[in-house]
Design a protein around this nucleic acid. Structure first.
Lengths: 163, 163
DNA sequence: TATTGTTATACTCTATAACTATA
DNA sequence: TATAGTTATAGAGTATAACAATA
């Protein structure tokens, strides 16, 4: 089977750190690692702040994009958000069943569905934006400071664009 | 296939009518959104750079942590990495089957498995570290600049810690 | 023939309950 | 009784193929 007689450099006896906190070591210098953990924290906080409206980050991004770009079809919105078309269907089903948006067959190309926010969708988006600004982003700015928060936004955009 | 895939074509601005690029709007000010997209890019690049060794970010983090903290059990390592114990099992199975680490029953508490890198595990980790430094982090530093890269690390750690 | 929305499907991650063997 | 490792399982998120309607 597998090996059983190597690893003689560090004996299983003589633990000098029994029960103590582990050394992260080079892990804390690994940007991907910190980035992932920070991203999880930020999404957790987003969900907490958005709990009254029951919107996920992905759902919020769809409403935001639709408000700024009315009359687009599913493929255009999904592509812009990096969501694959098949996976976009159930996401839209959920929002449409909550009457936040509508799918309408395009008169010019009856294959495509034109997406538009409903009045309820616009109202919900307005409340959602307020929650994000006053609870979520406000807390981030409080932790980082306004200058670093802005710098961070720039760096994230740069990585997403140029990396 | 060239090195440049057309994941997202950026059309010239000013095309707000039919067929033009969509307006991201407030989406670009949403830190969680940029953070997520940046994190995906960084992990993609990590996998590309690490392709010769076939290590995922999670696997690399386990090797790194084990090297710095030999003789710990599965629960301690998993908790430190934010991995749930049940999900840690198959991750370890994969690394152990590649002879990169060993599980040994602890003599003091026969319930727990003491984890240690094998010689092959240490050698692989050394090669992995070199790939990360010379290919992955080097590219990040090239895009961001050394000062911003360092600042970014600090901010990510701060969010992961205080947020 | 090509494209839009869709279904089906599969694979990875993540999360919870419950089992076993030890303590 | 409680804990460490494990199994089973379920749910998200993500990926590809293929089909019907339409172009």
């Amino acid at each position: 089977m597998t090996s059983q007689d190597q690893a003689k450099q560090v004996a299983p006896v003589g633990f000098d750190e029994e029960g103590g906190a582990l050394q992260l070591g080079e892990l804390s210098e690994l940007l991907g690692y910190s980035l992932k953990r920070a991203q999880l924290k930020v999404f957790e906080d987003f969900l907490r702040c958005m709990a009254p409206l029951q919107l996920t980050p992905a759902q919020f991004s769809v409403l935001l994009l639709l408000d700024k770009n009315p009359g687009r079809n599913q493929t255009e919105i999904a592509n812009t958000l990096g969501i694959l078309r098949p996976n976009f269907v159930s996401l839209l089903d959920a929002l449409e069943s909550r009457d936040l948006l509508t799918r309408m067959r395009s008169p010019s190309d009856r294959r495509s569905h034109v997406l538009m926010l409903t009045d309820k969708g616009r109202a919900t988006l307005a409340r959602a934006k307020k929650l994000v600004a006053t609870r979520h982003e406000a807390r981030l700015i409080e932790v980082l400071g306004p200058a670093e928060h802005k710098a961070l936004l720039g760096m994230m955009a740069k990585i997403a664009r140029e990396f």
